[in-house]
């Protein structure tokens, strides 16, 4: 028996919004420790890694490890049927071929349940090595979303250059070029507005704007985003999900031919 309950549907809705542009389907691995989803997009350029810790759910029971392959488009449709302040309970029997989403209104007067067929997904799991990144940038997530949106008008790809002075985002194409420089915040009044750079070595990497823009769909989950970069390895874009866990996106850099 698997059962996980959250007092508020909003977070699950936001999580689905943050993954459904990149993934059509995914396997939710459920265990005592929580729920994990790891899946690459079809082109194997980016990877989504979602972790939700069991102790942050309002109720969590997982008698046996369970892998549930879900169509994320269908899951998003079902979650749209929940009001933001509804309690959500996800339930599945051991070895079941369906999962049930139950929504309960705050006054307990409306209860709805939606059953969804599970899928057998033959997905590859990737081992992601622990990496000491040369540069780790923390910045407001809205600012990152804005930069990705603005620079995508100029080119398919964006160069991110990080030094100890700051981080520079650049795009250049037929229309012209764009550069946005952010300096490290000198005095932090509000932590969520700060730009903080931890640099071991300067890094310059090029990434496809399309994927970066897809990652920014997670912006409503967290005020801050963390970018971790090292030369010639995938970028990690991380959004914390309050005290529930995190969503990390990995993106392969563009490489010299």
């Amino acid at each position: 028996m698997f059962e996980a309950r959250l007092m508020n549907a909003t977070i699950l809705k936001k999580i689905l919004d943050a993954v459904k542009d990149l993934l059509n389907e995914g396997t939710f691995d459920c265990s005592d420790s929580g729920i994990q989803l790891q899946a690459m997009d079809n082109s194997h350029v980016s990877l989504v890694s979602l972790t939700l810790r069991s102790d942050s759910f309002d109720k969590f029971r997982c008698d046996r490890n369970l892998s549930m392959g879900m169509n994320l488009g269908t899951m998003a449709k079902i979650l749209k049927c929940a009001n933001n302040d509804d309690t959500v309970t996800i339930k599945a029997q051991d070895n079941a071929d369906t999962v049930t989403f139950m929504f309960e209104s705050q006054n307990h007067e409306k209860v709805s349940d939606y059953e969804m067929k599970l899928m057998n997904l033959d997905q590859e799991h990737l081992g992601i090595p622990d990496t000491d990144y040369s540069c780790v940038v923390r910045m407001p997530s809205m600012e990152f979303a804005r930069i990705c949106r603005d620079l995508a008008q100029f080119s398919e790809s964006m160069v991110i250059c990080c030094t100890k002075e700051g981080v520079k985002f650049s795009a250049s194409g037929d229309l012209g070029s764009a550069n946005v420089k952010l300096a490290q915040t000198s005095n932090v009044d509000k932590e969520e507005e700060a730009v903080i750079i931890e640099m071991q070595e300067p890094v310059t990497l090029t990434f496809a704007c399309r994927y970066l823009n897809a990652f920014t769909k997670a912006t409503p989950l967290c005020n801050q985003v963390q970018l971790s970069m090292s030369a010639d390895v995938p970028l990690v874009v991380e959004y914390r999900i309050s005290d529930l866990g995190h969503i990390r996106y990995y993106l392969a850099p563009k490489i010299e031919e």
């Binding site: 690459m40 082109s43 194997h44 350029v45 980016s46 990877l47 590859e124 799991h125 990737l126 081992g127 992601i128 090595p129 790809s157 090029t206 496809a208 390895v233 995938p234 990995y250 392969a252 850099p253 563009k254 490489i255 010299e256 031919e257």
Partner: peptide, 14 residues
Amino acid sequence: SQTQGRLDSFFKVI
């Protein structure tokens, strides 16, 4: 010129 890398060349399948 640059080409798009794939994650398979960085991370191993387990």
